[in-house]
Amino acid sequence: MDFISILSIFVMAVFVGYYVVWSVTPALHTPLMAVTNAISSVIIVGALIASAAIGIGGTGATSKWLGLLAVVLASVNIFGGFAVTARMLAMYKKKDRPAAGHK
């Protein structure tokens, strides 16, 4: 992909983000932050590439270890972020539902 195609995707995604985020109800702004946190850890893709790369020489090996450390950090975020979002969202309940029925 050339730079302009990538830039186009980026600019379009900023606009999509703008409209999607304005439609998020203010009551869910905390879960919004938690879930955006989780998805920004898609940076794990870069970390996986670094970890799997064939390390040549000293810098190659360092690169691999940096990658593995990044995989750990990003995984904390992915699993923690989605889990905590799920936990929060499960708490939002409507009126007049059998509140006693929940676990």
Partner: peptide
């Protein structure tokens, strides 16, 4: 990487 660019833009604007 498209996934990273789209996500980054979403999270950034959010």
């Amino acid at each position: 990487n498209t996934a990273m660019i789209i996500t980054g833009a979403l999270v950034g604007s959010s």
